[in-house]
Design a protein around this nucleic acid. Structure first.
Lengths: 130, 130
DNA sequence: AATTTAGTTTAGAATAATTATAATTTAAAA
DNA sequence: TTTTAAATTATAATTATTCTAAACTAAATT
């Protein structure tokens, strides 16, 4: 009955706490965000566990690593196809659900076998522009 | 007659060597690539100078910082609008010149004042697939 | 249920990229 | 030529991330 069995990785209490934190999370948290949140329940939680768990999830296609923030990786548990806007002032990231059909002419893809794409928008969020 | 006057930053021999290295460079070099190349002429060149110069160029809109490579920033002196494909095996980055007109519906941009976008394609380059 | 084992957790050290510091030097303005 | 504001340098500091090796534990096997 464990809802996280589908991840096909060994379940530990620490991992379950991380999964719970990530589930439905729209904040695109960093490893540190996750670490801080989960440390409240597991005071011995280490960064290594956070990174190991994220890597295990990523391998199985259950979390996406975002390279959009200049200073650190951010993680997105929403695996449905979507893009992101990042605020250039406060670094908040919002989802962009929009069917952006980019067709890449062959002569432009330089012989690459293209397997994915990622679109980031930059701008100033409502809060930061007052 | 200095061709780099247009950058509007103080010209030093070290900076000029960096500019020369970047000019027309299609390799999307990292700070280390630049450092190694320029150190051949200036054996005392330091990383700080590379980063300072890149930051000065960036401020004036003469180089673009690419966050596409997972491990380090890469720099692109080509400021004309274009996108990138990165090889997931060897990390080589190629330019994609293609007019990708993404129109973002208002209800989807969540109140952001959008000032730019960046599209990355992922795939395997010709060399890596043999 | 007890044992085994392969994988996980942990604290802490190591690494890698980048940024900061502070003394010295230098481009270019006066 | 002098002045000055900014750049260069070696080095230290910082930050994110990865590694290590010993202790632990989930879950497979008996």
């Amino acid at each position: 009955m464990e809802k996280y069995r589908r991840f096909n990785i060994k379940l530990t209490p620490q991992r379950i706490a991380i999964f719970d934190y990530l589930e439905g999370n729209k904040n695109h948290p960093s490893a540190e965000d996750i670490y801080k949140a989960v440390k409240k329940q597991f005071s011995t939680m280490s960064f290594a566990t956070v990174y190991n768990t994220l890597e295990a999830l990523r391998e199985k296609g259950n979390v996406r690593e975002l390279k959009i923030d200049e200073h650190k990786k951010r993680y997105d548990p929403d695996m449905s196809p979507h893009h992101h806007v990042i605020c250039t002032k406060c670094n908040v990231i919002h989802d962009v659900f929009s069917d952006i059909g980019v067709h890449l002419p062959d002569e432009v893809s330089k012989g690459f076998d293209i397997s994915g794409k990622s679109i980031e928008f930059f701008g100033v969020c409502r809060k930061c522009k007052y």
